[in-house]
Design a binder for these strands. Structure first.
Lengths: 340, 340
DNA sequence: GCTGGCACTCGGTCCGTGCGAGTGCCAGCC
DNA sequence: GGCTGGCACTCGCACGGACCGAGTGCCAGC
């Protein structure tokens, strides 16, 4: 019906106005700023219906309306066109990310860029180890029985780990060990690494068995450890800007961001296809994020997901712009990492 | 004189009370809570003098007194004994930091520990490259003309960098290159690396010269780059707790913390001897830190400074406790990294 | 089904008042 | 000379009432 259609437009107008002004929006202002072709009184009727349906709410009796989580949800799903980035913005992304010298640098720039574009907190996940393959394994002797295992993946990640061996090791064994490990693992998916270990230990020359076992164990541990999936967080200063939107909840939010696990779960629950996922307010399982929205997307080439990235901000955010920014940055980072 | 002595005690009492209550402290309360042996009236006289000398101030006429930066300075320099940590706290430090598997892990734990102990923002600097020595250099081929240079230092740092070579490289050359680089640099101080390059290029076999030059250049670049000195920041959630102490300045502070350069300068300006340095309010050159104090110290063995660590908090902080915590953690980290 | 009109609600702001903490000063005492 | 109790004074803050205006819901009319 024409009714429903207009009601949705009213909702859209409410979301847009509220996002830009941060004031509960009333029927009169709405009629003035958007030409909906009807009078404030009619809008009031529509608003009453929208409120009954749970899309908007009044903070208190004599105030305007504010979108609810459900209202934002509808807005994101049906009322907003993803806004294409301007040419200038695309250029900015390119300029900002080019010239990065290593993975750490790329992700650091990415997080700063995202934070700047969206003026929100940005979060970028390192390419997951489990989806990466081994490019090279290096073993360096630190002390008699202490080795440093360095793992270099095809996504450019470099992980290190100290291995305590049960016995002292001589330089020659280290060299043999290195060769052995590399011929076994180089090129292999890390996800499959676990399966190769028993075989590798069995076929290793006797004097190396203990070593191979110890080092392999360390390698596997690096994969399953909670620290496996690293996260870069940036733009927390933007939280201060939006502090008004988080009355008294800035602290748990900051805690959640430091507690990487929480955010990790959100960011990694992305569709591998490259669709931007938006989680609004209560949709976020974690309590601290109840008043926040998370916009996230996976990055990597279509056939090969690497990790996720996204932003965290108040539910009262500019979804179309932010979704566009997140998507564009993810694409660019995907290309950048695919070619390295 | 006895006067001066008592006046200092009054100042000490004011600082202590103000730090613990966050209320401007008046003469009456002071007389009640500390047995200074004199009446409120006398204390008032002392306070008038202290105010005239600039050690304390009144927020407004009919309020109690609050220490000024100068007051805190005197307190830190002359009035506070560094409070030894309790046995339980020492145990906690040990327990928290043991079991770290690599440098990244050690520093991550350190920053969390420090943030938790002091309930402030904690900052830890990675061991500076310039003060480290090369333990091993690894060269991995990524594509025809693209190499990945991995630097492993004796402090456990692992740095990576992509090197674009002017020509395609074959696997054999990579191996030769690796051997060459390691025999030249392994064991050398990174600070001296620059000096070795010309010689190395000259003596290299002709077919490797271009490669050696390119890779060496990349190595040197890694050293001088601004990203050279990494920083780990944690406990920013504590800023929310102390937000009242930073009226409206939380944001620039967060920005300064993300802008690692700023904090880096502060943290790295530490005495290499292991003395805790305190910078109070205006003493911090950077504007955003004007309302904050920084407590920092170098870590590493006495003969070998590695980096700095510290905390950032409101000027109204518990200096004795925080100084003790910072010092204790730095010592422990120093030991931990010295033996690895 | 839309519109203008109207009575009503209620949060925010402004202002005046009273209270209490804290001060500075002074005269007196040791 | 220095400490003390007393006292008048200042001033921020919390409380409470009045006012105002934005916004609403409802209703009668078109």
């Amino acid at each position: 019906m024409a009714h429903d259609e207009r009601r949705l437009q009213v909702l859209r107008a409410i979301v847009q106005d509220y996002v830009s002004t941060n004031d509960p929006v009333g029927s009169k202002a709405l009629a003035e700023r958007h030409d909906l072709g009807v009078s404030p009184a009619t809008i009031r009727n529509d608003m009453a219906v929208l409120e009954e349906q749970g899309y908007i709410a009044q903070p208190h009796t004599s105030a305007g309306r504010v979108p609810t989580d459900k209202g934002y949800r509808l807005f994101v799903d049906r009322l907003s066109a993803v806004k294409p980035l301007s040419a200038a913005e695309r250029k900015a992304i390119e300029k900002f990310l080019d010239g990065a010298v290593d993975l750490h640098d790329v992700l650091g720039r990415t997080v700063r860029l995202l934070a700047q574009l969206t003026r929100n907190v940005a979060v970028v996940q390192y390419p997951t180890l489990s989806r990466s393959a081994v490019r090279h394994l290096e073993v360096v002797q630190v002390a008699g029985a202490r080795l440093l295992l360095v793992l270099i993946t095809d996504t450019g990640r470099v992980e290190q780990r100290v291995v305590e061996c049960p016995v002292d090791v001589d330089a020659e064994s280290v060299a043999e060990l290195r060769t052995l490990l590399n011929s076994a693992f180089t090129g292999a998916k890390l996800a499959d690494a676990g399966g190769k270990v028993p075989d590798l230990v069995d076929t290793a020359p006797p004097h190396l068995r203990v070593l191979v076992a110890a080092v392999s164990a360390a390698l596997i541990e690096t994969l399953v450890e909670p620290g496996e999936d690293r996260l870069v967080v940036g733009g927390t200063a933007n939280l201060a800007r939006t502090a008004l939107d988080f009355p008294g909840t800035v602290r748990p939010l900051l805690e959640a961001l430091e507690e990487q696990v929480v955010v990790l779960r959100l960011i990694s629950e992305v569709d591998t296809g490259g669709t931007v996922v938006v989680r609004i307010g209560e949709e976020n399982a974690h309590e601290a994020l109840t008043g926040a929205s998370v916009v996230s997307v996976g990055y990597g080439s279509p056939d090969r997901a690497l990790g996720g990235l996204g932003i965290v901000g108040p539910t009262r955010m500019d979804y179309p712009t932010n979704m566009a920014a997140v998507r564009a940055v993810a694409r660019y980072v995907g290309h950048l990492l695919a070619e390295s």
